[in-house]
Design a protein around this nucleic acid. Sequence first.
DNA 1: GTAATAGTGTCTCTGAGACAATATGAT
DNA 2: ATCATATTGTCTCAGAGACACTATTAC
Lengths: 249, 249
Amino acid sequence: MTYLLDSLDYAPPLLEGHPMPLSAYLHTVDLCVLFYCRADGELKLLLNKREAEPFAGHWALPGVVVNGGVQDLSLKDAVERLRASDKVGLALAWSEQVGTVGDAFRDPRCWSSSTYYLAIVSDEVELAEHQGWFSLTAVADGGIKLPFDHNNIVAAVKERLFSKSLYSSLPLMFLGDEFSAPQATTIFSLVLERPVLKTSIRQRLLKLAEAGYLRETGRKKHGEGGRPQATVEMLRPAEIYFFDRSFAD
Amino acid sequence: MTYLLDSLDYAPPLLEGHPMPLSAYLHTVDLCVLFYCRADGELKLLLNKREAEPFAGHWALPGVVVNGGVQDLSLKDAVERLRASDKVGLALAWSEQVGTVGDAFRDPRCWSSSTYYLAIVSDEVELAEHQGWFSLTAVADGGIKLPFDHNNIVAAVKERLFSKSLYSSLPLMFLGDEFSAPQATTIFSLVLERPVLKTSIRQRLLKLAEAGYLRETGRKKHGEGGRPQATVEMLRPAEIYFFDRSFAD
DNA sequence: GTAATAGTGTCTCTGAGACAATATGAT
DNA sequence: ATCATATTGTCTCAGAGACACTATTAC
């Protein structure tokens, strides 16, 4: 049986004059792309049907090899290459590195490391055939099994999302540029897995407005009956704000 | 000119039957080992005089190559191998992964990545000839120049130490198992680079005691004249506690 | 009008910031 | 007693938790 690397068609380059150590080793960048599905009222994780061995045909995290050639100038470039590829192909409202794991067992081919990222998509999007949205919770707690140690990676990313949401505006990244206070309450409650009082969220939005991260639009959104919702607008879409207190629990 | 890897004496292993991509690539684990020097009243960073090229003879962060062979079973093992080596050789009161950088330029030999860690030593220790304690601040802001991108790595670790110290008990790791409230006040003020009120620290220590992380010993320490300091004892030396509020600013 | 949800007001409680008041050792 | 520092007490203030109350739309 022969393993092939995903999207790899090069001869191993060697720096001339530099006798380098060569060994079976893979370093990948893997993305956990998250999305708030309003229809299902839950967070979704982007998975990709693998084309190459190992685990061809299985759903797994989108990833690229970074030590395969000289295509990227940096890890950031590798992340952008992956984002722009057909494995992802979505605009990211947020992306941050979470950690790196590496051991001799996680990939059947060889010793390998993965540097993994939390990414958030805010817009409703079309996926390709080989892509799918899966329940983040189900993947994180092992209800949906992924190859390699991808379940562990997803669990670590979910934990980062949770802990950072206790004291930052991160969850608002799921809502895009314009949203309402009730929507903010919903997404915070979803991410923190408990009801969050609307008054607490309103105070935090007020704080964000004072800090210049947010502005009232004067426009209204219509929810499910009842009074319409006033909307606010993110002024610094790519930034998150850190509050000086956590939500308790 | 020929470059040699640090402590490398192996033939590149290949998994038989698996045609693997081979390319000039290095993945290292690098440690930022910190220490509170009471004599100088500042935080120190452990540096190592490099034996091998590139930058032989220069002071740099202690590190090991992880894709050089099959000695380690995981990144954690690589960290432990580095810790136990003569590059470090110290007991660590705390250690956590901070991030991974990688690009084509940071190492003159080839494309390389570094997964770097924040580590804390609490005990007064003896260093070997090739080791030294340097001012953390001076290294982080470039007053002391290091090879590779080690200045940036140190700055990132210092930033992590700072931000995590706003809402956790992390700085207490510098003090060992038994310490006093005034000592805690000193280390928090040092790490946060501003005076922290002793009353705030006392309340946090009280919180830690309630949570079972801490106990009063009944013993006393003598500072510089004045009333002796009551000491407390860490009950969970390897754990940090997260407070639900940040220090302001 | 009623139903349904949005938005406001107010109270409690915790913990940081500030600083005064008291305690405990060395000399 | 005096000095120097440790420890305690008290006040203010910001913001989370809780919940009652008012406002705005659709019907």
